[in-house]
């Protein structure tokens, strides 16, 4: 993979920030380095960072999926609805994963085969899938799932590590291999740069896009189920607004909103950075909303600073000659 030097420097910057925040956190709180805190740090945002992985593929491909949080809500609602209608939970879970895949494929169909902009299609999905979730559960809260289901979200599995975290780690490795080593990953980049050139090279661009959106829907559904397992109950407004955090993680990781550039190392660092930042601020008793503001500012700065640096750099050069 050839990456322009500025991106190479981007990961370095993320790493430096991460180390700085870690250092501050260690100085601030004696609990920070405890195993319990580190597991907890992942656990609190685990669903978002799982979806961020497939979102990386989508954004590198030059598209966007705003509907992920609604699909998370939808999948949880489908599972809860079917379970309370008397269907065995394993079947309900399978059906809800299928619903997520179908929702993703539906987005993908309109984007890939009709050629509509993904921003508009998935905006419709964001509103529409949430609507379907609400039709299913209305304003009720469903709970009373079997213990094994709740354990999926909360209980330590391998040592102190929960099932969700294992799922995330396995998926991270999987997506890294796909994006940076496989033919599909190459096609994702090529299409993100120039989808027409890909088409003229015999790449089956429609199929790749459909596949990516279906994957995004399926993974969002999985994340929705893990979220339901962690909370132990399901409501119609579950995971509302998560798409913003998820997209922020990906963009902060140096993935270009226009597609075609960025890598999973950056996204991994960005995940660690955001988790540690939130955790540190939490330990310092800063509220969730202020945390969100800080991350919002970080997102804007992450693009603004390199831009400004480049402008200054050009001006500087101009003065020298």
């Amino acid at each position: 993979m050839t990456l322009p030097p500025i991106l190479r420097r981007w990961e370095t910057l993320l790493l430096v920030l991460l180390v700085a925040i870690g250092a501050v956190n260690i100085a601030w709180s004696p609990f920070y380095l405890g195993v319990g805190n580190i597991v907890n740090l992942f656990q609190l945002s685990i669903e978002k960072i799982i979806v961020a992985l497939t979102m990386t593929l989508i954004i590198v491909n030059g598209e966007i999926d705003l509907s992920v949080a609604s699909v998370m809500g939808l999948s949880a609602c489908v599972a809860a609805y079917l379970f309370h209608a008397g269907i065995a939970l394993p079947w309900a879970l399978l059906a809800s994963l299928a619903a997520g895949a179908a929702a993703g494929a539906f987005n993908g169909f309109w984007v890939a085969y009709v050629g509509l902009p993904s921003l508009a299609v998935t905006l419709a999905g964001l509103i529409g899938y949430r609507g379907i979730a609400r039709i299913l559960v209305e304003d009720r809260a469903y709970g009373g799932f079997p213990d094994w289901f709740n354990a999926l979200g909360q209980q330590p599995w391998i040592g102190p590590v929960t099932v969700s975290i294992v799922v995330f780690l396995v998926m991270f490795a999987g997506v890294a291999v796909v994006l940076h080593g496989s033919a599909l990953g190459r096609l994702v980049y090529v299409m993100g740069n120039n989808v027409q050139a890909a088409r003229y090279s015999g790449v089956r661009v429609k199929r790749v896009k459909l596949l990516l959106f279906t994957a995004s829907g399926t993974v969002a559904a999985l994340a929705g189920l893990l979220y339901a397992a962690r909370l132990g109950s399901v409501r119609g407004d579950m995971a509302v607004g998560f798409e913003l955090d998820i997209i922020t993680i990906v963009l902060l990781g140096g993935v270009s909103i226009f597609g075609g550039s960025g890598n999973l190392v950056g996204v991994g660092l960005s995940i660690l950075l955001i988790l540690n930042l939130r955790n540190g601020m939490g330990l310092a008793n800063i509220t969730g909303n202020t945390q969100t503001s800080v991350i919002g500012a970080l997102l804007v700065l992450s693009v603004l600073v390199p831009n400004m640096a480049q402008t200054l750099h050009t001006k500087w050069k101009g003065r020298e000659t």
Binding site: T248, T287, V300
Partner: peptide, 22 residues
């Protein structure tokens, strides 16, 4: 700043709301 509008306003959506809450 030449920052894409979707990034700027995604950020300010969070920032302005956060300012309001604080």
């Amino acid at each position: 700043g030449r920052v894409p509008s979707i990034i700027v306003t995604l950020g300010s959506l969070a920032i302005y709301r956060g300012i309001l809450i604080d």
